[in-house]
Nucleic acid binder design. Structure first.
Ligand SMILES: [Mn+2]
Ligand SMILES: [Mn+2]
Ligand SMILES: [Zn+2]
Ligand SMILES: [Zn+2]
Lengths: 150, 150
DNA sequence: CTGAAATTGAAAATCATTTTCAATTATACT
DNA sequence: AGTATAATTGAAAATGATTTTCAATTTCAG
């Protein structure tokens, strides 16, 4: 985590942004937290321990965190912007449960390769991609079957 | 298109919804239009020829069109809900140009197969998925290279 | 220290989406 | 056709996440 903090400070200086207590608190809260949180999630978390930080500051700091490559936006189709840790994390895709909302991070090198090929076939220069599979997780699949039986 | 209209009417009756001129006008505009339009897009299009239809009606009718299986929502990551024709259209994924905003519909059966396998490997029951590859289309790739040369 | 420039937080603005409600319309039934 | 009733309509307001404004405060280079 120290590495991320130093990287963040370096990036701030690089862009003539100031290293403030608020920004550091917000970054630390983000790094410590479970992943995939919205601005509002993080704001509430911080509020519990420190009510001195405003929503706008959390919002703005999250934008900086994204720009510095420490976070990336994930989109679960509910129109809410959520962030996950990016630094030191490899690319992955998601399995998202339609019932309980839990998600699983997955990676398949064969799919990744075919995605590259597919793009090239269309003379398209791929930069990034997003693959989300929606369905029912093991637990929810079971409970759905049980419901149907009743 | 007549087939879609009949299907729509049948669905309306099935759900005790009324067949109104507004609903039919909106459906026709949707079916005739280029794909991937937002509620606002469609509202503006309709307004050009018929200023008697309110935004709320377009909005509500689009919801019905989705429910009847004539449209599906596509998500290009800009938080705007857009619809594309669904009836008689096969599943496909998208290549989306980061520069000009154009998109290309693609389908790769090998990827689809691997997606199924990946889900199963995680005991996950897949229902639908979304795969979007963002990058630069052929034209934009060229113009970017030219810019860099200058 | 000091001053210029950046930051902060409360509040307001924005913007797509969704709901409300009184007036209007579609439809089933005389 | 006329009537009852239940659904629909459109303007306007509400919503909710996101983004901006601005006066007061803080950072930090010199
Ligand atoms: Mn991937
Ligand atoms: Mn696919
Ligand atoms: Zn589940
Ligand atoms: Zn392009």
């Amino acid at each position: 985590m120290q590495k991320e903090i130093e990287l963040f400070k370096a990036q701030l200086r690089k862009y003539n942004l100031k290293v403030t207590q608020q920004r550091l608190k917000i970054l630390e809260a983000f790094l410590k937290a479970e992943r995939h949180l919205s601005c509002d999630d993080l704001y509430r978390m911080i509020r519990r321990h420190n009510s001195e930080i405003g929503y706008a500051t959390v919002y703005r700091t999250l934008k900086i965190i994204q720009k510095t490559g420490l976070a990336r936006e994930v989109d679960f189709g509910d129109k809410i912007s959520r962030l996950e840790h990016e630094y030191g994390h490899k690319h992955h895709d998601h399995l998202i449960c339609l019932k309980c909302g839990r998600f699983f991070e997955v990676f398949d090198p064969d799919i990744e390769l075919l995605q590259e090929k597919l793009a090239r076939k269309h003379k398209f220069n791929p930069i990034r991609h997003k693959m989300d599979i929606f369905g029912y997780c093991r637990k929810c699949s079971q409970s759905i079957n049980q419901t149907q039986r009743m």
